[in-house]
Amino acid sequence: MNRTGTVAIVVAGALALSACGKKAPAQLPPEPGPATSSNGSDNSSMGAMAGSQADFVAKMMGSDTIYFALDKSDVDPEDQQALSKQAQWLMQYPSKRATIEGHADERGTREYNLALGERRANSAKNYLISLGVNPARLSTVSFGKERPIALGSDEQSWAQNRRAVTVTID
């Protein structure tokens, strides 16, 4: 193929692709307004329905997650404060159930990390029970190293992944 033919093909391809471009709509939708509630429930948690998972996360302000030292599953004083806050919320909504997810960092075997995640979830569960939460409302699951929140292979990332997260069930 000669140079003129090659140029013609490139130009034809560019024209064909430009014809496929999206066109802007004639009128854009209105900007979203503030969230409103028609049911009269407490909207203090940034529009979250009282007793929902979104309400739990908003009121916990990070206390839905506790962190552990390397190869540890014990609840330290900082974790106790977070779990106390969780227990208060759970006591306020006695029909709500929760699952505590245990996690580990990427080091260690899959089996070891699943067992460690289970110990971490059970430690958090047992502390909530000691604060008066009905054990029938709590379940645990271990994800081991399968669901990291931080993807790096450094101490900062590993520290974020050694955790137990409480998730309410609607």
Rank of each mutant, 00 (worst) to 15 (best):
G5E: 15
V7R: 12
V7A: 13
I9K: 09
V10M: 06
V10P: 03
A16Q: 08
A16D: 11
A19F: 12
C20F: 14
G21C: 06
A26C: 09
A26K: 14
P29E: 07
P29M: 02
P32S: 09
G33L: 07
T36Q: 13
S38F: 11
S38G: 11
S38A: 13
N39V: 15
N39H: 12
S45H: 12
G47N: 03
S52R: 03
Q53C: 07
S63Y: 05
I66N: 00
I66V: 09
Y67H: 07
F68P: 00
A69K: 07
L70S: 15
S73F: 14
A82P: 01
A82N: 04
A82R: 06
S84H: 11
A87N: 05
A87W: 04
W89K: 00
L90D: 00
L90V: 00
Y93I: 08
P94F: 01
S95E: 15
K96N: 11
K96R: 09
K96M: 09
K96W: 03
I100V: 02
E101W: 13
G102I: 06
G102H: 01
H103E: 12
T109K: 08
R110S: 15
A115T: 08
R119T: 07
R119N: 15
N122W: 13
A124W: 02
K125I: 05
N126L: 07
L128A: 06
I129D: 04
L131F: 06
G132C: 01
G132V: 04
R137P: 05
L138T: 02
V141E: 09
G144A: 06
E146R: 11
R147F: 12
A150W: 06
L151S: 12
L151G: 08
G152W: 01
G152L: 00
D154F: 01
W158L: 11
A159I: 08
Q160W: 13
Q160T: 08
N161R: 04
R162G: 04
R163W: 00
R163D: 03
V165C: 10
V167D: 09
D170T: 07
